[in-house]
Amino acid sequence: MTLTDRYIAAAAAKLPEDQRAEVSAGLREAIGDAIDARLDEGLDNGFADAERSALNAMGDPEALAATYSERPLVLIGPDLFLKWKRLTVLLLWIVVPIIAVVIPLAGYLDGDSWGTIVGSTIGGCITVAVHLVFWVTLIFAVLERTGVGAADLSDKWTVDDLKETPDPRVPAGDTIGAAVTLVITAIFLIWQQVYPWAHTDTGEGLPLLNPALWSFILPALLVVMAVELVLVIARQVRGWWTPADAWATLAINVASVVLVAIPVAQHALLNRELFAHIGWPDAATTVTLDQIEWITLAAIVAINITDVVQGFRKARRATRSPG
């Protein structure tokens, strides 16, 4: 088998069955003529050399076969690329956060250790994300090869598709909502101590939260909340978010999560005496006080993460917008 034969076989292997014979004959002519021309010019050292240079000039046989059969040499072309990107990003934003909540919750309810839960959450999120990107890409690669265009998938873009540019000013509703939440939480913290739900037989009050936390944790939490209230009002007066605001929000949220996490880790957020007194959870309930504490912490962490992310997004939007 000559080099030319091998080259033609390599190109033909990448062609649809019905085009092989015809394209092979065409290639044999093209290569043969190129070799003859090189021999006539006398540039090469004999036939073998001329054949090598002629085939080198023709390039990768698979690329040549793709040019002949007009097959795309891209996985997803420019027509479908944006659809692919938007769908992938959208699905990742929807699915991965759900997985990131469901896996640790299931692990926790199964009584797995912290290391196992963190490991399986990270592993699970990566697996789901990789699967998602792979399958979406596969579908679009198939669409690309079956000649489906962007026009078949959705309507043509018009100005109506432009995103609403959000008002960079801080809405009064946000401020009122945040302030009311802070005040109610503070009132609740104090109220549950001053007016406890249950009393011991000797008439001593049994608050919901561990009273020992008043030595440091709960006052500190109230201070943090007071600082946050000041920031929220200052922001409303100023009228827009700044990067400093976002960082301050991050610091405040980290502080409050840490303040709640410390007693949770020590199994001391809820007042054990109260629950012992009212006799709940009893033998019939499957939940433990520890679990309630951890779920409370998880909920607080989730709310705080959302808060911080929102803060940075609003700050970025406000600094970007011209107004």
């Binding site: 394209v23 065409g26 290639l27 002519e29 093209a30 003529d33 190129a34 021309a37 000039a57 023709m58 390039g59 690329a63 040549l64 040019t67 002949y68």
Partner: peptide
């Protein structure tokens, strides 16, 4: 094909063989 390549290059419209043959087809 090959003669067409020479004629094109004679009027300085040089084109590679691996572009011309698929184009003709």
């Amino acid at each position: 094909g090959y003669n067409l390549l020479s004629r094109l290059s004679a009027i300085s419209l040089t084109i590679e063989a691996n572009t011309l043959y698929p184009l003709l087809r």
